[in-house]
Design a protein around this nucleic acid. Sequence first.
DNA 1: TTTTAACACGCAAACGTTTTCGTGACTTTC
DNA 2: GAAAGTCACGAAAACGTTTGCGTGTTAAAA
Lengths: 348, 348
Amino acid sequence: MKKKITLKQIARELDVSISTVSKALKNSKEISADTIQKVQAFAKLYNYRPNNIALSLKNRKTNTIGIIIPEIVHHFFSKVIRGVELVANKRGYNVIIGLSNESFSKEVINMEMLANGSIDGFILSMSKETLLQQDYHHYTETINQGMPIVMFDRVVSEIKCDKVIVDDFNGAKNAVKKLIANKCKQIALITTKDYVSVGKLRTQGYLEALHESNITPQAELILKMDDTLDYEVHLEKLEAEIEQLFKAHKKIDGVFAVNELYALSAMKVARRLGLNVPNDIQVIGFTDGVLSKHSTPSLTTVSQHAQLMGERAADLLIDKIETEFDTEEEQYQTVVVNTELVERESTK
Amino acid sequence: MKKKITLKQIARELDVSISTVSKALKNSKEISADTIQKVQAFAKLYNYRPNNIALSLKNRKTNTIGIIIPEIVHHFFSKVIRGVELVANKRGYNVIIGLSNESFSKEVINMEMLANGSIDGFILSMSKETLLQQDYHHYTETINQGMPIVMFDRVVSEIKCDKVIVDDFNGAKNAVKKLIANKCKQIALITTKDYVSVGKLRTQGYLEALHESNITPQAELILKMDDTLDYEVHLEKLEAEIEQLFKAHKKIDGVFAVNELYALSAMKVARRLGLNVPNDIQVIGFTDGVLSKHSTPSLTTVSQHAQLMGERAADLLIDKIETEFDTEEEQYQTVVVNTELVERESTK
DNA sequence: TTTTAACACGCAAACGTTTTCGTGACTTTC
DNA sequence: GAAAGTCACGAAAACGTTTGCGTGTTAAAA
């Protein structure tokens, strides 16, 4: 049980000063070849590694980025994390995570925990509660203290910072256009209430696609679910509403759902009602989870390239961290990650 | 853009010493009421928060735990993380993650990055490559340096540390017994090669269940897949092998698979061969992913309580971190988390 | 009035680094 | 043989804290 060795200990053992040891390890030409050799041999023997914390303090730089997300047991977010970790690691950074669990207060607490020197910058996606309360002071305060922030997916225009977002609008539009091209006449939309920006944008994409094809949208074909509830738990409620929709509008022959679970539920209800997917009714979802790929029939979805978003966000953040001079007035950019329609069995 | 304020700056502004400020903020009785009031007001105004890094250096304690896992886009691991984060946060710790991506070298690098002062202890699950190479020096070295480690799920007896494991043996045994109780006569096993400890244990559970019911195991009913490949990618190969198995043994009426995807593939192949699940063939999987719940038919599985494992691991680790005195010789414990058979539609 | 005690505060060390600058001992140069 | 230069190293400050101890001032006790 040999504890980690420090410069001081090496110095004492070798009867030189701490500075000599430090320089010797860096092959400084101030130090004689003899001493360098001696010090390095000793350091290697005892497996010396500089203490990160001391370095962080000295350099006022932690080489760590904080990521705060609403939920980690979620394909989208875990893929984003993977992307962040990938480039962070490549560029010499560690990643520290905080989960808000969709709660405003946990988000605030987590940010405060990390903002006091532990990290060099944030990557985050807002919790639903924050989105609802529209209280963004913790973000702006953090930014004002000079800590860079990159937001992704769930963003809001009030906050001035770099952002990485999915092209929700066009993703949805293309999906619906695909349904139209596949001869669907009555296309239902299963979405969330509008305060969730992504739900809103996808809804707009749906409407735009109809518009461009000169189809008059029918309000009765749009189902807006309350997204504050954990829908994993409220599956029955979800299915009941969909069933009601299908029964009230037997002519529905296409469904665009703003997430995977809504789409899956739609397929399940359709099957229960004796409808065949994709022959009687075609379904497209949004997100690239595991369910789509392995469901029966497998689900055509709008893939979001979550990992790529994480990579972009990390690059953006680290770039900002490493630009010494804040070039005059802050210049923020918003990266839009394109979606991709992955066609599977639920469409023709 | 006001940067974070330090004790020194407060001291200068208020024309007192740094120590006075520090003590005043702690309501030390060495300091007069006037001064305390003055300092605290000023600190509040400027939103003073002590710098974590400086504290970590001083206290030689980071209040951060490192977690290293093979993969994050995976229901099991992300649930474990959630559990870890939950108790870590509750007990005042942060969580920093490292992904080995199933690679030995990335695991080593990640551990070294974190072991140099960044964290107080590790929670980790071994990469497949490490499991294969059986090179554990990075673990033992870390432990020898006095850094506590808690391993979970993929563990190995050679490493002396606290562990949290799933009761794979009994989980598998109970699952197979369930199949037997449900009148299955020919029960196939779809498992991994034996170097993955969990695969091995689940296989043993399968055998034991048969043994206890006086059924002679048939080697031809056991399919051992090569787990070094990413099976998400090699789905067709997997399905082909299963199809071959089913065709060669038409009397198979039960399947126990050591993970979710194997089970799902089995159901898919069965359907393709015109077999009804659960009437012709019953299927049970292992793990508590999303797929089981949302597949059709939904899959009966052995649930592992991943989040609970994470919580246990975190408690174990933090307990160890916070016991001042290493009570004489190290005493390690292994926590076994029970499994639970979640019955769904794939069994009768 | 002198001694003692209480009070309110500052000094300095420590955590583990890095880096600038200073300095003593040689070596070279004229 | 003296001046200048080179070499190899050490001292010290700095990053931002906490804390034991020393000290000057004042008030209380003798």
